[in-house]
Design a protein around this nucleic acid. Structure first.
Lengths: 245, 245
DNA sequence: CGCCCTCTTGATCTCCTTCAATGACAGTGG
DNA sequence: CCACTGTCATTGAAGGAGATCAAGAGGGCG
């Protein structure tokens, strides 16, 4: 019986001990995936969702002409691959950016759990809406912001998410993403990612040594970001309380 | 007791008569909203989601400098405003593009229904994932496609969605969106939207008279689109069957 | 040690923006 | 009935953000 770290649910709602326990034991035995390898290929039949127990991974969509767009950068503790659970063949590929530990959750298992713990449906709904909001913000940033604004926003987003899992010290964190990958996230070329980063560096807004990034004046950076972080409501009114279902 | 047309759920899963009945009676008495008026303002406290009973509306995010990005074009039958149900203040504004009939569903009412009909949780989850996929595709298109490709994709997307509600005849449909609005959807200026549309016209791919759009060679257009429509799985394995919960 | 990947920078190009002007059309009030 | 006004579509000209092409430098790893 595997014993995983919790998923992100406890950030968004109170869980009973029993619910927390179920989430801990959700996945199959963990798998180890090496850098650059795929956790799940796109256009593959969908039979599971995934928990990223440790590491960085990307969810990317393949377009004609060898183009690819990364639609999500996943970090430790994320659920992955859930958008494709409504499809027969996966929309996005899940690729390990660093070495990853991950666990499969077969869709059949998910059904059992949804039946046994009906509150997980609304809980899952909640976390999916949070992801959807993140995508809306990405769309807004891509449609209406400059490369510099988008980069600032991405850095702040990673900063805030990493801070929640204790991977930030005083504005500094590891970002194991090549400029090529950053380009595929932001809809820019690697070359322009470089120029944008160097610009931010010259402006004294960020500093870098290898994969280590240091955000300078956080308040100033947040002013430069085209969008503020979303304040997710803990235990929203529509979410049935533990006793209620 | 209001009697609305069904939401989109029946496109994605089998519903019991009872479930269908509940969905029909979900909303408060309908409201009428005139062109350009807001159904729900952004940054407003969130206390409900909305059913678009008839008309066209947009969900848009406001950015600094008067910029705005439309993240979804809603048509008759859509649920609206659900991403913000995890927030205290709304992320997106809902604006009537045409005169709209809409119905509010208070979040408290939603909780009751989720408790009384636990299968609605997973059903709602399903439709939210479909929306999330749509956003992923938008991101992919914005990040990696030309104006022309994006426009073709949007037209096909609208075509396919309108076809499902019987609003397309032989490739022709009404599209009551100004070029300004199209620009805010595609992340382009109204001027470039115009040039792109005129280009497609000159190429014989589309025709227009006023708000009426006619798509020419659909197969050819689909080849030009950077992304195919997603094939949503009806009654996916993880979705508990009506008897099961 | 040598290879390949990644970062960096310069030069040039191009797609889309910006600015500006005109025309078509609908609604409105006299 | 018609002038008046505002919105929307259209087109041209010029500018700019980011792409593309190319080359060199550094560094990790087999």
């Amino acid at each position: 019986m595997p014993n995983y770290p919790l998923t992100r649910f406890h950030e968004q709602a109170s869980l009973t001990d029993e619910e927390a326990e179920i989430l801990r034991g959700l996945g199959e035995p963990e798998m180890l995936v090496r850098r650059q390898n795929m956790i799940r290929r796109d256009r593959e039949p969908v039979d599971a969702i995934y928990l990223l127990l440790e590491g960085w991974a990307t969810a990317s969509i393949r377009l004609p002409g060898g183009r690819r767009q990364i639609v999500k950068v996943h970090i430790t503790g994320d659920m992955m691959g859930t958008p494709s659970m409504v499809l027969d063949s996966a929309a996005d590929a899940l690729t390990a950016v660093t070495e990853c530990r991950a666990a499969k959750v077969p869709l059949a298992r998910l059904r059992e759990v949804l039946i046994a713990y009906p509150r997980l449906g609304p809980l899952l709904l909640m976390s999916v809406q949070v992801e959807r909001l993140a995508l809306m913000d990405v769309v807004a940033a891509m449609g209406k912001s400059s490369a510099r604004e988008r980069m600032v926003r991405l850095l702040l987003d990673l900063h805030d998410r990493l801070a929640k899992i204790g991977a930030v010290e005083d504005g500094r964190f590891d970002m194991p993403l090549t400029q090529e990958v950053l380009g595929d996230v932001l809809g820019l070329t690697a070359v322009h990612v470089n120029r944008t980063l160097r610009l931010l560096e010259r402006e004294g807004l960020i500093a870098r040594h290898g994969q280590r990034v240091a955000l300078g004046d956080l308040d100033l950076l947040r002013k430069l970001s085209p969008l503020p972080p979303r304040q997710v409501r803990f235990d929203p009114v529509w979410l049935p309380a533990p006793g209620e279902m």
